[in-house]
């Protein structure tokens, strides 16, 4: 007899927050319901196989009009790397000026993903 299991998720891909249900038959995804758009199915599939998150944080700025600049991972990184990523960013310092999109840390925690600035900080 097949082992059928249902798992519930709240999709985080947009603020709609759809309640999505995945049906697993013997550990394999056989049905996904409740999602409004394809992103919901993609989210649940990833959540069951390789959960990932975008991390947003700050890095220190030297010589800038502001002491810190906001940053984000350019795409989502494995969920388990969130704390190591935050720690790596605490030790990162950049020099002003910083523009939106500037890479502040390459290949964070060996994920292959860069961390980029999300705000502009002028030099003073």
């Amino acid at each position: 007899m097949a082992n059928i299991e249902k798992k519930e998720f709240v999709c985080i891909r947009c603020p709609l927050g759809c309640n999505v249900t995945a049906t697993l038959t013997d550990g394999e995804i056989t049905e996904i319901t409740g999602n409004t758009c394809p992103r919901g199915a993609d989210y649940v599939t990833k959540e069951l196989t390789d959960p990932r998150r975008i991390v947003t944080s700050l890095v220190r700025v030297e010589g800038g009009a502001l002491p810190v600049v906001s940053v984000k991972t350019a795409s989502d990184i494995p969920k388990g790397e969130m704390f190591d990523c935050a720690k790596a960013l605490k030790e990162t310092v950049v020099s002003a000026p910083v523009r939106i999109g500037d890479v502040v840390l390459k290949d964070v925690c060996g994920t292959g993903i860069d961390v980029v600035a999300t705000a502009n900080v002028e030099a003073v």
Partner: peptide
Amino acid sequence: CIHNGFGLHTFKEELTGPE
């Protein structure tokens, strides 16, 4: 608001607040 999730309706992409 440095977190992401802004602009999906307006720009069809997920931006942070400052962006």
